[in-house]
Design a protein around this nucleic acid. Structure first.
Lengths: 385, 385
DNA sequence: TTAACATAGTTAAACAGTTTAACAAATCGT
DNA sequence: ACGATTTGTTAAACTGTTTAACTATGTTAA
């Protein structure tokens, strides 16, 4: 059948006027272009194979699935025919019949450049590799406000698009995450954790990462350390801030609130935050940044403000984005195992889908990558030019 | 049914030993954990709706699809029941029964950081927005060698995973593109064109872009212009090189082969290429780079080599990657309408899927974005310090 | 010898929709 | 008042695969 705008109808169905117009169109088309069902003779189904091999469709199905109920002889005979006809099972039919769709959704936040982000990209690489290896397809979704408002994130399960979803770049503020939890749909939050909901998650050890960063700076003699954070509502950001404050207190160092600033995870935000912190506290000798992009921004601001890195101010980032190893000065940073996190998230999600019921809560360790943007604290004499 | 490693079997079926071991496992599991089919009472189907509304399933289906054969009264009554029961059609059943899956695949090249690339990200944004609006889901695939070797790109169609595929970042060298063409599977090559195969494509007007870049440089007085290109086998790269050479010849300017160099689309490649060109031709006053990443690399090399940009050497890029507006000096570049290209590719692909048969060959115009990395050619006196 | 048991395969009923031929009822023209 | 047309609805036949239940055939064990 020729039904050219059927799915368009579905989309605009909320608007009655639209619907009516479309209905008229459809009627006309039905009259103008009479049904011309083109049989695709090339697409062969399990029935063809069964007929040609002289067995029942059930037997062919069992051969496809290596069911031991089928004798070696029959198995081979049917396999040969499958080969010859080039038969490949229709995945839609398999999914309809079976319990699983063998696909997962990846949800990204509604940022303008979510698909071009090195952080997401690295996690996604891990997910894609693993999912591919385990025979799962990947659906890409962006959690735009309208998408959530219309409940499309739940539709993903309710209409059986996917078996599970991986959520990247979300935090407590994103209430839709709880919907998955409430309906017991398999979902894993990647690189964050929700404090009041028992959602499944895999996360980098941000507490450890912050310790490593602070260790590094304190050992180099820094005491006046600024913090450029982002998404303060998220658990991981709170942990970083917590470690930052604790370590400063232990070192009898200043912890004024004006020494920390939100950098919104962006380059420009990082630059602006650095400016604010340096303006309020010219004695700052080191900046600890919540991600590499903000660190890059800070670096840019410092350079443009005539401060030398690391001679005047040290900068340490977090993420270990590939190409920041090559900027000048190259960035000291906390390496997050993002690829591995993606792999792990995928593994755990699939386990959960297959029926494992334990709560997923995995943490992966970070490590320090020492490069050029950090150095020993400037001596007091050199401090006032 | 509990069939935990069924799909694992599928994967490893090529290895007989593996298969045997798995068969044993499967048998054991079947015995150990007897079938425990949990009925999901919440999931309601079209049949429930029909029963509750006192009509046939056909009527409900027709209501869902706004078929005008159904009277206003029945339509409303059934809609109400659909609403009340929260019925949502199972997409797998729809796809099996209908002609379309309402999903598209996006194929990316097998680069390590394909998912984190600003160029792909921008196109992908356009695709995702458009596909979402038209009710299509997006499958993400990476064209790894093994993937192609196993024919998984054709499986995408043959097993009815998707209705069409969008190919990003490929060129003539990627022979699998022709497979789509040969089998008449709907596929659109995005931002490139194949010279000897009538594959569908949408592309930026690289010839125009190159004209704009060369105009800019020539008007600023530059005559000794280097070219950093990439993927010389691709049509678009050849067009750029062609325009570059033609314009230089018209201006009686040097066109030595050593004034152009492959930068592999990467930051580091761009830096290395710049170094090569400057070494061979210290008189070079401008570099035209095939993309922004290579331009950034060139910028970095020039700065590190003590050349000032744009006072000593001008640099012009191509792509107009967002955050390069903020580097210092900010990058003059050719803006490619990548988002719009994604939208267009999606539109055209869906038209093709719905039966339109004209060859797809669309070109979108580019424009110059003048920023700080280009300037007037240095005077001869200043040329030799 | 017969009941009990594997083995290897078949049948038919799911899965959840869409499509269409057929039919009944209402409207219309003569 | 009767046949023709229009309108609304339905039953049945698809889509392609899986699987529970069943059958036929040969082996053993009592």
């Amino acid at each position: 059948m020729n039904r050219p705008d059927k799915f368009k109808l579905d989309d605009s169905a909320t608007n009655p006027a639209d619907t009516d117009r479309a209905q008229v169109q459809k009627t006309q088309i039905t009259f103008d272009a009479p049904a011309e069902r083109e049989k695709q003779p090339d697409r062969i189904s399990i029935r063809e194979v069964a007929r040609e091999a002289g067995v029942s469709v059930a037997t062919v199905s069992m051969v496809m699935n290596n069911n031991p109920r089928i004798s070696r002889a029959t198995h081979l005979r049917v396999r040969k025919m499958i080969e010859r006809l080039g038969y490949q099972p229709n995945r839609m039919a398999q999914s309809l019949s079976g319990r699983y769709t063998q696909s997962l959704a990846v949800m990204l936040p509604p940022l303008r450049h979510a698909f071009a982000d090195a952080y997401f990209g690295e996690i996604l690489s891990g997910i894609a590799d693993r999912a591919g290896k385990l025979g799962h397809k990947l659906l890409l979704e962006q959690a735009k406000p309208q998408f959530i408002r219309e409940g499309k994130h739940l539709e993903l399960f309710e209409r059986r698009f996917v078996d599970g979803v991986l959520c990247l770049g979300f935090n407590e503020k994103h209430h839709f995450l709880q919907d998955f939890c409430a309906k017991e749909f398999p979902a894993v939050i990647v690189d964050n954790r929700l404090s009041h909901t028992p959602c499944d998650f895999v996360v980098c050890d941000y507490r450890l990462g912050a310790q490593q960063a602070m260790n590094c700076l304190l050992q180099l003699g820094h005491r006046n350390i600024g913090l450029i954070y982002a998404a303060p509502e998220s658990c991981t950001a709170r942990e970083v801030a917590d470690v930052y404050l604790t370590r400063l207190q232990e070192a009898d160092s200043p912890t004024d609130a004006t020494r920390r600033h939100d950098g919104c995870f962006t380059d420009e935000g990082g630059a602006a935050a650095a400016e604010q912190i340096l303006a309020a506290h010219p004695d700052t000798t080191a900046l600890f940044c919540g991600n590499d992009k903000m660190a890059l921004g800070a670096l840019r601001y410092l350079t443009s403000a005539g401060k030398r890195v690391p001679q005047d101010v040290s900068v340490i980032g977090c993420d270990d984005i590939q190409h920041l190893a090559y900027v000048s000065p190259s960035l000291t940073t906390i390496h997050l195992p993002l690829y591995e996190l993606g792999v792990l998230a995928c593994d755990k999600l699939i386990e959960r889908i297959r029926g494992k019921s334990e709560h997923i809560a995995e943490t992966l360790p970070t490590h320090l990558v020492l490069r050029e943007s950090t150095g020993i604290v400037p001596t007091r004499s050199a401090e006032s030019p």
